[in-house]
Design a binder for these strands. Structure first.
Length: 260
DNA sequence: GAAATTTGACCGTC
DNA sequence: GACGGTCAAATTTC
């Protein structure tokens, strides 16, 4: 029974430490884990006791390249809020490697992590490796517009496909929607657009400033766009996901600079 | 004063 | 023991 209790206690502690928390209190008081109690913070005073031996701090396991996604980009920006937690000189590399984790790690338990290293060549490109997935609610800051497009034909994953698909649904977070012009002229695309509150109003973006392609956490592709409101002289950006099947729409954005 | 960054130390893997 | 990844105190920025 003691052995079983010891095992279950240990598993419980491993489980809690995996989620970033460690109570330091063994399940059973008689399983001989007094050292764990000794190292736990003094709850009453709020101060850590001076460790007799150097305190173990966390997990330092090397990351596996499996389950990682690599992206080469001219910018470190990707729409998410990252917090730098380390920088390291890497052997045989001119530039240091920077370590980032999601800013919302503590709020939403988001485990997304990325490593950024400048390319050795003169291209000024960054080699970005992503680990884990974002579990925080929204990419980027909450004030930015988020647009998600769903397409009927989502089977064919050919970029710039000649076979147009139809936008069947567009969801825009009403709280961050920047501009919806219900009087804007309708087009083939906008005919099939509807806003988040189902008023079927079309969306007009005055000017698309720029766009770049990437991959979101579930393997689907996304288009990052920047918008400028010529009336208000403000700009914002957002994402179009699952657009990859819709070559006509993408061409519209990239070639004409705008769409309704 | 809170949040973000820097940087030396610590720790696990090879 | 070297190396890469992480921690956390000190420092900087807003």
């Amino acid at each position: 029974m003691e052995i079983l209790e010891s095992f279950s206690g240990g598993l419980l502690m491993l489980d809690s430490s995996d989620s970033g928390e460690f109570s330091g209190v063994p399940v059973s008081p008689h399983v001989g884990l007094a050292s764990a109690v000794d190292r736990s913070p003094d709850v009453r005073s709020g101060k850590k006791p001076a460790p007799a031996v150097k305190e173990r701090r966390g997990c330092y396991k090397r990351r596996r390249t499996i389950d990682s996604r690599v992206k080469i980009s001219s910018t470190m920006e990707d729409g998410y809020a990252w917090r730098k937690y380390g920088q390291k000189e890497i052997l045989n590399s001119k530039f240091p490697r920077c370590y980032f984790r999601c800013t919302h790690k503590h709020f939403h338990g988001c485990k997304a992590v990325k490593q950024v290293q400048k390319q050795e060549d003169e291209s000024n490109m960054f080699h970005i490796t992503y680990f884990g997935h974002h579990t925080c609610p929204t990419p980027g800051t909450l004030s930015h517009q988020q647009v998600v497009l769903d397409f009927e034909d989502s089977k064919n994953n050919t970029l710039f496909s000649n076979s147009p698909s139809t936008i069947t649904n567009i969801r825009i977070d009403p709280s961050v929607k920047q501009e919806v012009d219900s009087k804007a002229p309708s087009t083939d695309v906008s005919d099939n657009l509807s806003s988040g509150n189902d008023d079927h109003s079309s969306i007009r973006w005055n000017e698309v400033l720029g766009a770049d392609l990437g991959t979101c956490h579930e393997g689907a592709s996304f288009l990052r766009f920047e918008l400028e409101d010529s009336c208000a002289s403000t700009s914002s950006h957002g994402y179009l996901t699952d657009f990859i099947n819709n070559g006509d729409l993408l061409n519209d954005i990239l070639l004409n600079g705008a769409f309704s």
